[in-house]
Write a protein that binds this DNA or RNA. Structure first.
Lengths: 91, 91
DNA sequence: CAGCATCCTGCTTGATACTG
DNA sequence: CAGTATCAAGCAGGATGCTG
């Protein structure tokens, strides 16, 4: 469910904002490609962690946000990240 | 640090016992191979999550345990697993 | 802007056989 | 028992070009 090079970066970035457009995520997450962004967003969507809003506009306007369910998971993920931080500092 | 097909199964299994031999882990974790067990144990060792005790006996006797550091990480992992459980039940 | 399709590469994994 | 070595396969991921 969380496996994939960019799942966590996407979740954390998305968690920091109420809502975000694709292009913003693409800019904000260094190194990610359009392909992987979309692919991982789809999976996060399927798993109910992220919601997609399509504004049906021209030009296209789509926004993403972390769902309530996804938000419930974040504290645990933050704890793991914190552990990783302190753990990696030592190197 | 946790990425790898068997890292979490190993950690959780190891967490449930004070100490475990290789062969026990091999038996207890369905589907894992000798190779992956050793490989992942080495990495967990390098990351300080697991400790290896070699009893220097003949025949070989080696035991593994979760380190204090590793134990500190477990509550967060358990929380994520719990989330995954409830999440997967719905399917 | 948002997304899809394609090709291509490298890592991770699995199967198997072997050593002390 | 514990571990290593080798080979082949599968899949995730990167680069690129195209669509509405």
């Amino acid at each position: 469910m969380l496996s994939g090079r960019w799942k966590l970066p996407i979740l954390f970035r998305l968690f920091a904002e109420p809502t975000m457009r694709s292009s913003q995520l693409l800019r904000d997450i260094p190194g990610i490609s359009q392909k992987m962004l979309t692919q991982h967003l789809r999976q996060l969507e399927q798993d109910g962690l992220v919601a997609r809003q399509d504004f049906q506009e021209q030009p296209p306007h789509v926004a993403y946000e972390v769902t309530a369910s996804g938000r419930a998971l974040m504290p645990a993920l933050i704890a793991v990240r914190e552990f990783a931080r302190q753990h990696t500092e030592a190197e």
